[in-house]
């Protein structure tokens, strides 16, 4: 098939850009560990309240792990438990969340923390919270009549 000379240049540029995008995202993912939330743990969603760590929602300091804090969140129609998460700035935090009923979202406005919460699955995301501020957490997956009233707050504070 004959391709016009300029069309060849264009395809080289276009396909080249796509390859660069893939290389950058791929290196970020497989070298720097920056994957979107893809945890594979499952849970009995009807017994979430009895199963650790969800039997104790909230922010906990942990030792001997790759991260300093665990922020444990239980979502159900139409609220998050706990309603406020407070972590010190600079801490490496693992967010661990699940749903007790339907599918919910967990989107922290102004950050990259954005994960789906599905009944039966545990969603996880690890990040270093490096900017002080109050970040609104919203449910960003339609879950019923109270969907837009479902929110909480992430407070990144300066402990000094």
């Amino acid at each position: 098939m004959h391709l016009h000379k300029y069309e060849k240049y264009w395809l080289v540029f276009g396909v080249g850009s796509l390859i660069v995008f893939l290389l950058i995202t791929g290196i970020m993912a497989f070298h720097n560990g920056s994957h979107p939330p893809s945890a594979k743990n499952t849970i009995n969603h009807e017994k979430v309240d009895e199963i650790a760590p969800f039997n104790n929602p909230g922010v906990h300091k942990v030792e001997g792990k790759d991260w300093d804090y665990e922020a444990v969140v239980v979502a159900s129609a139409f609220y998050y438990d706990p309603p406020v998460l407070e972590v010190p700035v600079g801490a490496k935090v693992k967010f661990i969340a699940t749903s007790k009923d339907v599918v919910h979202g967990f989107g922290v406005a102004g950050t990259n923390i954005n994960m789906m919460l599905e009944p039966g699955y545990v969603s996880e995301y690890v990040t270093t919270v490096n900017k002080v501020g109050e970040y609104l957490i919203v449910c960003n997956e339609y879950c019923g009549a109270g969907h837009a009233q479902m929110h909480s707050m992430l407070k990144v504070v300066d402990p000094k």
Binding site: A29, P36, P37, T42, M116, L117, E118, Y121
Partner: peptide, 14 residues
């Protein structure tokens, strides 16, 4: 469309 969902391995998403 399911990139931020749990239960699917990152490599398969990629």
């Amino acid at each position: 469309h399911q990139l931020t969902e749990p239960g699917v391995d990152g490599s398969w998403k990629f």
